[in-house]
């Protein structure tokens, strides 16, 4: 298979239940290198579960997930080394509060990649500069605003130079005036060619950045397509209803 045609993420017939709730119901989706997929849908539709199953923060009940050629549920797959390729950004930032901003970025490269502190610091400072908070390198996360924390969280994920970035509602916990600064960073990242899977309610972002928009409801993918298709003439009634409610 050529590199261009092989999907970097291939989700096949995945199902997952939480008790009696079916969070994912026979979902299949794939992403190719460099692609930006935005997953939208009402809350409880399974979009976060789908995203979190890509790096095995959720273990699926059935189906297979292939990431970069590895079946993530295979016993032979080292999930920890595979996760180094998958950067993840959370709704609640989840920065390490006992570490400075700089240490948040350098902890994993030093401990997991065996990078020297000097090298890790240099990379971290470059990334902090990129997300616009270099001057906060020695502050603790609690001293930052939500928007700043989320930008640090993005930089922390980037410090491992991942192949794919997963964003789980990155702006949902932010005050409205801070959403822009985080989205700007994400748009820049997209323009640089990063492969991204983004769960979000920010339709403007989806329209601007997405190669493909995926709409989920009740644990299933209802519709997917280009933003043009999606926002201009969606096919399904449920998609239309959802869009009419949020736009």
């Amino acid at each position: 298979m050529s590199a261009a045609s092989a999907p970097i993420v291939d989700i096949r017939h995945v199902s997952k239940s939480f008790g009696s709730l079916k969070a994912l119901n026979n979902v299949s989706m794939s992403m190719s290198l460099g692609e930006k997929v935005v997953i939208i849908g009402p809350s409880g539709s399974g979009k976060s579960t789908l995203l979190r199953s890509i790096n095995k923060l959720e273990t699926v009940d059935s189906g297979t997930i292939i990431v970069d050629g590895f079946d993530i549920n295979a016993p032979t797959t080292n999930i920890n080394s595979l996760r180094m390729e998958l950067g993840m950004v959370f709704q609640s930032f989840n920065l390490f509060p006992h570490k400075t901003v700089l240490e948040n970025l350098t902890l994993a490269p030093i401990k997991l990649k065996g990078m020297s502190k000097a090298e890790a610091d240099e990379i971290a400072l470059k990334l902090l500069d990129k997300v616009g908070i270099k001057e906060k390198a020695h502050a603790y996360p609690a001293q930052l605003s939500g928007g700043q924390q989320q930008r640090v969280a993005i930089a922390r994920a980037l410090a491992m130079s991942p192949k794919i970035m997963l964003f789980d509602e990155p702006t949902s916990a932010l005050d409205p005036e801070m959403i822009g600064e985080v989205l700007d960073v994400m748009v820049t990242l997209a323009k640089e060619g990063m492969t991204m899977a983004v769960v979000t309610h920010e339709m403007g972002f989806a329209r601007e950045v997405a190669d493909r928009v995926v709409f989920m409801d009740h644990g299933a993918i209802i519709e997917e397509g280009t933003p043009e298709h999606f926002f201009v003439n969606p096919e399904h009634d449920r998609t239309k209803l959802f869009l009419s409610q949020i736009l």
Partner: peptide, 21 residues
Amino acid sequence: DKGQTEAARSLGFNTKQTMFL
């Protein structure tokens, strides 16, 4: 918070590293 474990694991730390670091 569970998010701390998730953040550490998503970076590639194993359970032991997550606990001690």
